[in-house]
Amino acid sequence: MDTIAPPQPAPHPASAPPGDLAIWFFILAELLAFGVFFAAYAFGRAHNVELFNTMQETLDRQAGAFNTVLLITGSWCVARAVEAVGRARSQTGARWLLAGIACGGGFLVVKGFEYAAKFGAGINLSTNTFYMFYLSLTFFHFMHVILGLVILTALWWKTRQGDYGPDNMNGIETGAAYWHMVDLVWIVLFPLVYVMR
Protein backbone atom coordinates (compact mmCIF):
# COMPACT_ATOMS: atom_id res chain seq x y z
CA MET A 1 0.00 0.00 0.00
CA ASP A 2 1.29 3.34 -0.98
CA THR A 3 1.83 5.79 1.76
CA ILE A 4 1.35 9.47 1.16
CA ALA A 5 3.98 11.63 2.78
CA PRO A 6 2.53 14.54 4.70
CA PRO A 7 3.29 17.90 3.12
CA GLN A 8 6.55 19.33 4.36
CA PRO A 9 6.41 22.84 5.77
CA ALA A 10 8.38 25.41 3.81
CA PRO A 11 11.80 25.95 5.37
CA HIS A 12 11.93 29.00 7.57
CA PRO A 13 14.64 31.51 6.78
CA ALA A 14 17.45 31.53 9.32
CA SER A 15 16.85 34.24 11.86
CA ALA A 16 20.51 35.24 12.13
CA PRO A 17 23.19 35.58 9.44
CA PRO A 18 26.09 33.10 9.24
CA GLY A 19 28.88 33.44 11.79
CA ASP A 20 29.03 35.41 15.00
CA LEU A 21 26.34 38.08 15.27
CA ALA A 22 28.91 40.60 16.55
CA ILE A 23 30.82 40.56 13.24
CA TRP A 24 27.68 41.74 11.45
CA PHE A 25 27.40 44.80 13.68
CA PHE A 26 31.10 45.42 13.02
CA ILE A 27 30.51 45.03 9.27
CA LEU A 28 27.60 47.47 9.41
CA ALA A 29 29.78 50.02 11.22
CA GLU A 30 32.52 49.58 8.60
CA LEU A 31 30.03 49.95 5.75
CA LEU A 32 28.68 53.11 7.36
CA ALA A 33 32.20 54.59 7.48
CA PHE A 34 32.92 53.66 3.86
CA GLY A 35 29.49 54.97 2.84
CA VAL A 36 30.29 58.38 4.34
CA PHE A 37 33.65 58.32 2.53
CA PHE A 38 31.99 57.47 -0.81
CA ALA A 39 29.38 60.21 -0.41
CA ALA A 40 32.10 62.73 0.55
CA TYR A 41 34.09 61.77 -2.58
CA ALA A 42 31.01 62.03 -4.83
CA PHE A 43 29.90 65.42 -3.45
CA GLY A 44 33.52 66.63 -3.41
CA ARG A 45 33.71 65.74 -7.09
CA ALA A 46 30.48 67.64 -7.77
CA HIS A 47 32.30 70.88 -6.84
CA ASN A 48 35.50 70.02 -8.78
CA VAL A 49 34.33 68.05 -11.80
CA GLU A 50 37.12 69.13 -14.16
CA LEU A 51 39.85 68.47 -11.61
CA PHE A 52 38.46 65.03 -10.72
CA ASN A 53 38.00 64.03 -14.38
CA THR A 54 41.53 65.18 -15.29
CA MET A 55 43.15 63.49 -12.29
CA GLN A 56 41.17 60.29 -12.84
CA GLU A 57 42.96 59.97 -16.19
CA THR A 58 46.25 59.69 -14.28
CA LEU A 59 45.09 56.55 -12.47
CA ASP A 60 46.01 53.06 -13.67
CA ARG A 61 42.56 51.71 -14.55
CA GLN A 62 43.98 48.37 -15.65
CA ALA A 63 45.55 47.88 -12.23
CA GLY A 64 42.23 48.81 -10.59
CA ALA A 65 40.33 46.31 -12.75
CA PHE A 66 42.90 43.59 -12.10
CA ASN A 67 42.60 44.22 -8.39
CA THR A 68 38.81 43.91 -8.69
CA VAL A 69 39.31 40.50 -10.32
CA LEU A 70 41.70 39.49 -7.51
CA LEU A 71 39.28 40.50 -4.73
CA ILE A 72 36.26 38.89 -6.39
CA THR A 73 38.22 35.68 -7.02
CA GLY A 74 39.53 35.77 -3.46
CA SER A 75 35.99 36.13 -2.15
CA TRP A 76 34.88 33.18 -4.28
CA CYS A 77 37.78 31.08 -2.93
CA VAL A 78 36.71 31.85 0.64
CA ALA A 79 33.07 31.02 -0.16
CA ARG A 80 34.28 27.70 -1.61
CA ALA A 81 36.32 27.12 1.57
CA VAL A 82 33.26 27.62 3.77
CA GLU A 83 31.25 25.29 1.53
CA ALA A 84 33.99 22.60 1.69
CA VAL A 85 34.30 22.79 5.48
CA GLY A 86 30.50 22.54 5.72
CA ARG A 87 30.81 19.18 3.91
CA ALA A 88 33.50 18.02 6.36
CA ARG A 89 36.34 18.52 3.86
CA SER A 90 38.71 20.55 6.00
CA GLN A 91 41.84 20.04 3.92
CA THR A 92 40.04 21.12 0.75
CA GLY A 93 38.73 24.13 2.68
CA ALA A 94 42.27 24.98 3.83
CA ARG A 95 43.50 24.93 0.23
CA TRP A 96 40.69 27.26 -0.85
CA LEU A 97 41.59 29.61 2.00
CA LEU A 98 45.22 29.58 0.85
CA ALA A 99 44.05 30.52 -2.66
CA GLY A 100 42.01 33.37 -1.13
CA ILE A 101 45.09 34.56 0.76
CA ALA A 102 47.11 34.50 -2.48
CA CYS A 103 44.48 36.68 -4.17
CA GLY A 104 44.50 39.16 -1.28
CA GLY A 105 48.31 39.21 -1.31
CA GLY A 106 48.21 39.88 -5.05
CA PHE A 107 45.88 42.82 -4.41
CA LEU A 108 48.40 44.33 -1.96
CA VAL A 109 51.28 43.90 -4.44
CA VAL A 110 49.37 45.56 -7.30
CA LYS A 111 48.20 48.40 -5.05
CA GLY A 112 51.75 48.75 -3.73
CA PHE A 113 53.02 49.30 -7.28
CA GLU A 114 50.27 51.87 -7.86
CA TYR A 115 51.21 53.75 -4.68
CA ALA A 116 54.94 53.57 -5.54
CA ALA A 117 54.24 55.10 -8.97
CA LYS A 118 52.21 57.92 -7.45
CA PHE A 119 54.63 58.68 -4.62
CA GLY A 120 57.52 58.46 -7.11
CA ALA A 121 55.80 61.15 -9.18
CA GLY A 122 55.70 63.37 -6.11
CA ILE A 123 51.99 62.90 -5.48
CA ASN A 124 50.83 63.02 -1.88
CA LEU A 125 47.75 63.84 0.21
CA SER A 126 48.18 67.60 -0.31
CA THR A 127 48.63 67.45 -4.10
CA ASN A 128 44.95 68.26 -4.70
CA THR A 129 41.44 67.36 -3.53
CA PHE A 130 41.21 64.36 -5.86
CA TYR A 131 44.41 62.79 -4.60
CA MET A 132 43.51 63.57 -1.00
CA PHE A 133 40.37 61.45 -1.52
CA TYR A 134 42.07 58.82 -3.68
CA LEU A 135 44.95 58.18 -1.30
CA SER A 136 42.95 58.28 1.93
CA LEU A 137 40.02 56.23 0.59
CA THR A 138 42.12 53.53 -1.05
CA PHE A 139 44.57 53.37 1.86
CA PHE A 140 41.66 52.97 4.32
CA HIS A 141 40.53 50.03 2.18
CA PHE A 142 44.14 48.75 1.89
CA MET A 143 44.33 48.51 5.69
CA HIS A 144 41.13 46.47 5.69
CA VAL A 145 42.64 44.05 3.16
CA ILE A 146 45.64 43.59 5.47
CA LEU A 147 43.37 42.88 8.45
CA GLY A 148 41.34 40.51 6.27
CA LEU A 149 44.51 38.63 5.33
CA VAL A 150 45.48 38.26 8.98
CA ILE A 151 42.02 36.80 9.66
CA LEU A 152 42.21 34.46 6.64
CA THR A 153 45.65 33.24 7.72
CA ALA A 154 44.29 32.39 11.18
CA LEU A 155 41.32 30.63 9.57
CA TRP A 156 43.65 28.68 7.25
CA TRP A 157 45.76 27.52 10.18
CA LYS A 158 42.76 26.38 12.22
CA THR A 159 41.02 24.80 9.22
CA ARG A 160 44.19 22.89 8.35
CA GLN A 161 44.21 21.50 11.89
CA GLY A 162 40.62 20.39 11.49
CA ASP A 163 39.24 22.82 14.06
CA TYR A 164 36.19 23.62 11.90
CA GLY A 165 33.57 21.26 10.55
CA PRO A 166 29.85 20.94 9.79
CA ASP A 167 29.05 21.24 13.51
CA ASN A 168 31.49 24.06 14.15
CA MET A 169 31.18 26.66 11.40
CA ASN A 170 30.94 29.80 13.50
CA GLY A 171 34.61 30.84 13.33
CA ILE A 172 35.15 30.31 9.62
CA GLU A 173 31.82 31.93 8.72
CA THR A 174 32.67 34.95 10.88
CA GLY A 175 36.06 35.50 9.24
CA ALA A 176 34.65 34.88 5.77
CA ALA A 177 31.93 37.51 6.30
CA TYR A 178 34.60 40.13 7.04
CA TRP A 179 36.58 39.21 3.91
CA HIS A 180 33.46 39.47 1.74
CA MET A 181 32.80 42.93 3.20
CA VAL A 182 36.26 44.03 1.99
CA ASP A 183 35.30 42.78 -1.50
CA LEU A 184 31.88 44.47 -1.36
CA VAL A 185 33.42 47.85 -0.57
CA TRP A 186 35.89 47.60 -3.48
CA ILE A 187 33.01 46.75 -5.83
CA VAL A 188 31.66 50.27 -5.19
CA LEU A 189 35.06 51.96 -4.91
CA PHE A 190 36.48 50.82 -8.26
CA PRO A 191 33.81 52.28 -10.58
CA LEU A 192 33.39 55.38 -8.41
CA VAL A 193 37.07 56.40 -8.31
CA TYR A 194 38.59 54.80 -11.43
CA VAL A 195 35.80 54.88 -14.01
CA MET A 196 32.87 57.22 -13.31
CA ARG A 197 33.23 60.62 -14.98
Partner: peptide, 16 residues
Protein backbone atom coordinates in the same frame (compact mmCIF):
# COMPACT_ATOMS: atom_id res chain seq x y z
CA UNK B 1 27.69 42.73 -8.24
CA UNK B 2 27.25 43.87 -4.65
CA UNK B 3 23.91 42.07 -4.40
CA UNK B 4 25.48 38.79 -5.54
CA UNK B 5 28.30 39.12 -3.00
CA UNK B 6 25.82 39.85 -0.20
CA UNK B 7 23.39 37.07 -1.07
CA UNK B 8 25.67 34.29 -2.29
CA UNK B 9 29.17 34.84 -0.92
CA UNK B 10 28.12 36.29 2.42
CA UNK B 11 25.35 33.71 2.56
CA UNK B 12 22.44 36.04 3.31
CA UNK B 13 20.12 34.65 0.62
CA UNK B 14 18.36 32.31 3.03
CA UNK B 15 18.44 34.66 6.00
CA UNK B 16 15.59 36.81 7.27
Amino acid sequence: KGRLVVLDFMGLRGVK
